[in-house]
Amino acid sequence: MSDATTLDPQAGAAVDAQPQDMTSSQTSVIDQRPTPEVHAQCARSPLAHLFTARDDGDAGIVLQEKAFLGHLTLRGDPAQPGFAEGVEAALGLALPLTPATLHQNEGGRSIQWLSPDEWLILVPGEEAFTVEKALHEALAGRYQVVNVSGGQTVISLSGDQARQVLMKSTPTDVHPRAFPVGRGVPAVFAKATLVLRRVSESEFELVVRRSFADYLGRWLLDASEEFGVCIKG
């Protein structure tokens, strides 16, 4: 592949052929959350079958699924005028521009740098549509907001042996010097991948894809067994 930096001659013609001016997005956005009653009755989280409450006593590892959060993927060019401001206005958090960092607030919202043009936004589940809409209203030009709440879940990992379990699982350096609070990265984890973030001195969050949740959950339980496990329901 080349690294074309100039427009190629065919591209212009095609772009010109676009019929209408689309300065604002026409993305099809739907509120994907059912009513609270329906949600309470019908939702099934990716780890509900595996992370049943348990306490081995004096457990070195504490696990909890943070289910049904709102997960949004944001893509866009932060060099575009108004992009960073728009995100901050819509979300209430500054757009992280430093690689591998995340910003979070007391309200359970966070935004994590994944790539120069991609961020992961986590919000309480019932806020997903509000935030998605707000982002569409605040942003223009090249950007994308996609609701991926059904495709991901979050595992909270804490306990005295949390670092040891991570070291068994990921080639990412999780030493406190290398992985301070506020750092987050996609990571190879066992034979799958996930997003690993340190949200406090004592807690890591693992954002896992739904279809891999069972495998990763089983892996964590297996790697944690020798330390004793507490699973919070």
Partner: peptide, 15 residues
């Protein structure tokens, strides 16, 4: 770590 990367062949092959 290398595990995070995939190689895609020779660079600078322009279509």
């Amino acid at each position: 770590e290398e595990e995070e990367f995939h190689v895609k062949g020779q660079a600078h092959i322009e279509r």
